[in-house]
């Protein structure tokens, strides 16, 4: 196996260990700590939305016209009709395919 591929394997193992730590972490901590400080809890609560937003916003701004339009349409319809992520994906995919193969 070439070294670069080996690095990917190590990366996946590290990600698996990191994930497992989050899954046992709460159980281990709850026996140690009575209460989480409110500010720490606010910060922890913000982590997923903050991280995921950084994967969305630049794609919207720099991804090109077709990507931006499909993201926006999927977002607007999913928000308006309270759709699942899967349906939202289908809408976005249909829009981008329409733009790429019919409009342009």
């Amino acid at each position: 196996m070439d070294p670069q591929h080996l690095n990917l394997i190590y990366l996946i193992i590290a990600a698996a260990v990191a994930t497992f730590i989050t899954r046992i972490g709460g159980y281990v901590l709850i026996t140690q700590m009575k209460q989480i400080p409110p500010r720490l809890e606010s910060a922890l609560n913000a982590v997923p939305a903050a991280v995921l937003t950084t994967l969305v916003a630049p794609a919207f701004v720099y991804g090109g016209f077709d990507v931006a339009v499909s993201m926006f349409v999927a977002f607007a319809i999913a928000l308006g009709l309270n759709l699942s992520t899967l349906r939202m994906l289908v809408i976005g995919w249909v829009v981008v395919m329409l733009i790429r193969h019919l409009v342009l």
Partner: peptide
């Protein structure tokens, strides 16, 4: 990106 948007 749409998947991540849905998660957000």
């Amino acid at each position: 990106p749409i998947y991540f948007l849905g998660l957000v």
